[in-house]
Amino acid sequence: MKPFEERFTAWVDGQLSGDELAEFEKELAQHPDAASERAAAQKFTKLLREHSTAPALTNAEFFNLQIQQHITTSEAQGRAVGKPAGWFWSLPRLILAGAACLVVAGLLFKTLIPTKDHSRGLATSPYFAQVIEVWPSEPGIWANTVYNPDQNVTVVWLDGLDYIPASYELK
């Protein structure tokens, strides 16, 4: 049996007859809007039939030529877009990439490399005392070097030396 939609379309178009029409109209009792839908469809069909005439082309050859030219141009553009890229970028892209690299390099230089020149400060500072090596003479003695470049004082710092009482004559 045909589906309902197909039989409904046939009913709207007036193609059902006999037992088939009687049976379908019984079935339509369950669809109260069927009659109004059929009327609307028939009205629409009538309108299409009355106003479906296309305007006649006066210059059909010229129209076809225009369409062919349009198609040819579109195909050429499509081929240009789909053309595989060469081994290198175009000049504007290269210039843009170079400029971007320079900006990145400048940013890295500014952020990663300190600009304060300490060597100049050392070179102009009149103070220079450098401990190259220090060896304590006994295992109980520790020796370190203390130097602060801002304070310009070099100290050999000994720990573990015996205490000297104030009564001991140093001089």
């Binding site: 103070y127 220079f128 005392a129 450098q130 220090v134 060896w135 304590p136 003695i141 050999v156 000994l158």
Partner: peptide, 14 residues
């Protein structure tokens, strides 16, 4: 007490 090797510029005390 200690043995040290150092370099000193004139006028720079250690």
């Amino acid at each position: 007490l200690v043995d040290t090797e150092a370099r000193l510029a004139p006028g720079s005390p250690m």
